[in-house]
Design a protein around this nucleic acid. Sequence first.
DNA 1: CTAGGGTTAG
Length: 590
Amino acid sequence: MSRSNLIKLLQSPSTNTKQLKQLHAQLLLKTPPLKSSFYLCNSMLLAYANSTNPTDAFSFFITQMHEHVPNKFTFQFLLKACSKLRRVPVIAQVHLMVFKLGFSGFSSVMNSVLHCYVLCGRIREEGKVLFDEMPDRDVVSYNCLINGYAEVGDMSSAFQLFKKVECPSVVTWTAMVVGFCSNGDVMSGKRVFEEMPERDLVSWNAMISGYVKNRVPVEALQLFCQMQAENFKPNRVTISTILSACASLGALDTGKWIHVFIKKNGFLLDSFLGCALIDMYLKCGVVELALEVFRHLKEKNTCTWNALVNGLALNGHVKQVLDVFNEMRIDRSVRPDEVTFVGVLLACSHGGFIEEGRKHFYSTMKEYGITFMLEHYACMVDLLARGGMLEEAQDIIKGMHIAPDMVVWRALLGGCRIHKNVELAEQIISNMETPGSGDYVLLSNLYSSLRRWEDVEKVRDIMKEKGIEKMPGCSSIQIDNMIHEFISGDKSHPRYVVICEKLAVVEKRINADGYKAETSVILYDIDEEEKEQSLGHHSEKLAIGEIVVRDRIRFHDFKDGACSCNDYCLEVSSLVSNSPNNLRIQFLKA
DNA sequence: CTAGGGTTAG
């Protein structure tokens, strides 16, 4: 292989790990003398640093490059590998080497070091010291520092710095947009974005992703349209962000349109796009298409598998989740992680598979060395509590290495109601700092199922005293229609999100041609005990026209962390009030 | 000959 060919392949982004190893072998054939090929060595180092396995860059550096005198590029590439590893001791070691070999005067190298510390959240420690000691700082140094403060959530320091930068670049501006958005202040992010003197594709992507992160996917789609109107061509980053917006809206038509867009433009389905597509189809309830995308994917990593596992679990395909999980365990190229087990346990809890759930929680997770998260505990408590194993559920809570949140307690509380354990329910509620209306209603229902009418009254009085109100009946908004119109001008196939009270049921509507297309979220009133029991754990048919109940989902499925029905209603109504011109509100009968 | 900082998934 010729030298220029080798370089071309090393620099190509589509070269995979296996090919990289072959190129490495080719490179070794060129010795001696490697010295004349020092540029080649640096290219190899950079290729490893950019690969999925950046540790290879270190071994290459140690075993192959010790005979050479490294230059500033060698360190920049090595530091790139460091920034992916995110381990402070490793960074410190390379930093020391940089210092000892006299590269401290190169601002590009020092910026790389600074960037590494920033990514580890060490802005106030090593980052600050380094910045203050740097001989000549440029815009890049300031950008790193701004990112560092944003990373630890200190936007006021970031903003102070931003104002001090003499000649801020697009990158500086974008860093501010990203900083505000990822710290939950999307309004400030928007303001900075609008004040930017010039924008490039990355800044558009940053703002769009800011909207998605802050749960205003409709704004994201609007900006996506505006961006195209201003003649910016979306790239794969834009597309995967937009797919995520579609997923959180259940906007299937738009999502499908994007899928066509990907094919038309010949975008390679990498792990990011594949994952985003699978996630979108599953959140829209179209399992078949998600599976099709998954089967055709060339590169699958843990995220891809997780998208499938979690999406199937969300759709109530319990058996399939467990099958896919077993398939994943056999595949040696991926390793299940904590997110995988959220899906697995969620499936067990939805299916009422107590033994299976116990097996994974008590043993499989240890086998893979998984750190327990709140979600794992919540699923397990839910599963056991529903199955009547209230004591075991309590033991799990007692053994938690992190403080249980509201979701965990509510899972236990739900079990108390089903199995009529008044004492425990009372105890849980009295231990809650801020019980929500749902918690009181649940307790009240428990009392009434035992015909303890006086206690029912008492709960009602407490609620009145605390000013807690039940969320009123139901309202609905028509979202997808509008989004679809933005993009294609097509006004057919509107879908609805119906908000009622308490119990969420995801439904699939079967069209006349038998094609399952529409997904809605309906929150049933669980005051009627009978209805709740008839829904049970399993998906089953309801006698309401052509509607199939896919699954019950708990409220926290909509949002990270604890989330009640009220939260969800508020979220929807704030969406309505934030963009009154874009949403037509329509009231439906539940 | 090369480069450092801002955008994407579960």
